[in-house]
């Protein structure tokens, strides 16, 4: 898996930086951000989904392993979210003229990061391991359900400068702008970044489990 991730990323970087991209007004070369910025959000959402999945499993069957998995996926997901926000800000600096533009998508993503930062604060302030696992799993599920309307519904209600908004956000809107050659790089990019995230999470999970064994023995 890590080999696949590395191979795909090498491909994405060379192809993404060197291949031709469609010439569009204003966007110009910055359209290449699609290969690096957008996959961050896909990675974040997928990693958070995994985190919620293990939170549900923990609630049904409180094994410490599920708790570790849940929190580590949330850690790496948050790292992806911060990277997504930073790459987006960098892109916005050159296309919109300011790092922070108050765009609904920027606000929504900042709020969803706040949710998971609150999740870590909650974990830090609970001492009992079992209680920490259960309560943070509950908050994880609840906050995830609250995050979905923020990321998907609210930006659609407001006019947004973000590409893909103004009509139907997401893939459909890219279809007009994104020609086949771009999609040949974009989809591998999404997969590759997600694989990297998953790989980092599994490493962290392994470390945590080893620490646990070390403490218990």
């Amino acid at each position: 898996m890590k080999v696949a991730a590395v191979v795909l990323l090498v491909y994405v970087h060379t192809a993404g930086l060197l291949w031709d991209v469609p010439r569009l007004d204003i966007l110009n070369e910055s359209i290449r951000a699609v290969y690096f910025h957008v996959p961050m959000w896909f990675g974040m959402i997928l990693l958070y989904c995994l985190s919620v999945y293990y939170a549900v499993r923990y609630l049904r069957n409180p094994l410490e392993e599920y708790d570790i998995r849940s929190v580590e996926f949330a850690h790496v997901g948050t790292a992806f979210g911060i990277l997504g926000l930073l790459t987006g800000m960098l892109w916005a600096r050159y296309t919109w003229g300011a790092y922070w533009h108050g765009d609904p998508k920027q606000t929504g993503s900042a709020i969803s990061l706040l949710v998971y930062l609150a999740y870590f604060v909650l974990r830090a302030s609970l001492e009992n391991q079992e209680q920490r696992g259960r309560l943070s799993a509950v908050y994880n599920l609840f906050a995830f359900a609250a995050m979905i309307p923020l990321i998907w519904i609210i930006p659609r209600l407001q006019s947004s400068l973000h590409p893909g908004s103004g009509g139907n956000p997401g893939f459909r809107a890219y279809d007009e702008d994104m020609d086949a050659s771009m999609r040949r790089v974009f989809y591998p990019a999404v997969i590759a970044w997600f694989l990297v995230g998953y790989w980092i999470s599994t490493l962290r999970i392994k470390i945590r489990k080893l620490q646990l064994i070390h403490i218990n023995s």
């Binding site: 706040l114 609150a118 604060v121 209680q131 609250a146 309307p149 609210i154």
Partner: peptide, 29 residues
Amino acid sequence: SLSLISGIASKARNSNVLMAVLSFPVLIG
């Protein structure tokens, strides 16, 4: 939302701060 979050926060130390931290992001929507 707040009833549930109050239940979570009540179990932790410094629950009043936690109450605000946990609830604001959820309530923004």
